[in-house]
Design a protein around this nucleic acid. Structure first.
Lengths: 157, 157
DNA sequence: TCTGAAACAGTTGCAAG
DNA sequence: CTTGCAACTGTTTCAGA
């Protein structure tokens, strides 16, 4: 288990700003945290090198791209051995429409997040690609009707 | 309903690259898509201005920050009127540990994504903050044991 | 660890093909 | 669209406090 890395209040400010708005310039970031550009840059690099900042991503608007169905799919497997899990995970990896896959406690074994352009395309993904994996026993769809929060910001302790 | 915006293959390449690696320089991006810097920049601006690119975010490593519990929580409400939904949504908005909230079809009414530093902090959030909302009838936790895919990349049609 | 300044790299806008 | 170039903006390094 890795122990949490020590951060001061300035580091926390940096992380909160970059989670919300990664494209800020170093010059602007330094103003927002009341520091000069040089040490600001150094702190950002340190956060990147330590692995606390993993990566930077553009968030797209799915609707404008014609992706109108978002859903969570709860999956139960037939068997609980390591081979079955690994087999399932590697097949899920290849399905671009599955954008998240988590092993979870509760009634299902995996919870997937799936995106598709319409109900018909969604049906294709669920029936022809996910159900088609032998390791899968049953599925339950939770189609997203609306999203009220998708903050992309985890609370820095 | 908004109709999908027309994109050519070059725009799609840009979107795929920026979803994975938002911090790329315009100069490097232009090389990757075999175009010169000027029109590359113009395309990126167009994608931003059209709203297809919504925002840019730093992805943090929760474990290194001491956030060790991630979970989905399925929530059922007591009532299905608009007032009850709005009340629930606005209260959820204030809980930083709830990083996603989606209204969904299926057994539950909402599916939340929650993060906490340990099981005890998770219990506090679920019991003292989410269950405490009057509109909530019942909850079901699906704690994430492991995540095999979290691509941050939606498939551009 | 910070400041301030100087040197460098990348972006942005524009003209001509 | 491309190339090329200038002006600008932001990054990065470094000596000194």
């Amino acid at each position: 288990m890795s122990s949490p890395i020590k951060l001061d209040q300035t580091d926390r400010k940096i992380l909160n700003i970059l989670q919300k708005h990664a494209k800020i310039t170093n010059a602007q970031l330094s103003k927002d945290i009341d520091l000069s550009p040089a040490p600001t840059l150094e702190r950002v690099k340190k956060l990147e090198n330590s692995g606390i900042i993993e990566s930077y991503h553009a968030k797209l608007n799915g609707h404008l791209l014609g992706l109108n169905i978002y859903a969570f799919v709860s999956v139960k497997l037939k068997n609980y051995n390591k081979k079955s899990h690994n087999s399932f995970i590697s097949k899920i990896e290849d399905i671009d429409e599955v954008i998240e896959s988590h092993s979870v406690t509760g009634k299902g074994d995996y919870l997937l997040k799936v995106v598709a352009k319409d109900v018909s395309a969604y049906e294709d993904v669920v029936r022809d690609r996910i159900s088609a994996i032998d390791d899968v026993s049953s599925l339950e769809s939770m189609v997203i009707l609306s999203t009220s929060k998708d903050s992309k910001v985890i609370p820095v302790p």
